[in-house]
Amino acid sequence: MFDFLKAKKNTASIAKDRLRIIIAQERTNRGGPDYLPLLQRELLEVIRKYVSIDADAVKVDVVKDGEHDVLDISVALPEGRTATA
C-alpha cells in the first residue's frame, strides 16, 4: 500500500552504464583482424598454465606505427608477483 514511498531503483541508468562499458570495449576490438579474440583466448589459456590471471588481464591490439601495423600484447600479472620475462 505504501509502495509509492519506496524509492524506485533506477534500472535504466544501470543499463546505460553497462552498455557504455561493453560497447566501448567492443569498439576497440572492431576493425582489427578477426583472429584477435581467438589469439587473446589462446594466450590467456597458455599463461594460465603458469600464472592465475583474470580474463581481462591479456590485451591484444593491432596499433598503427607509421607504415607498420604492430601487434601489441600486454599481460597484467596479479599484484604481489614479479614478471620474469
Binding site: K9, A12, K16
Partner: peptide
C-alpha cells in the same frame, strides 16, 4: 517507463550509440 527510470530514454540511446 522511461519516466519511472525503468527504460532507457531517447537521449540515453543516442549517447551510447
Amino acid at each position: 517507463r522511461v519516466d519511472g527510470g525503468e527504460m532507457l530514454s531517447v537521449k540515453d540511446v543516442e549517447e551510447v550509440l
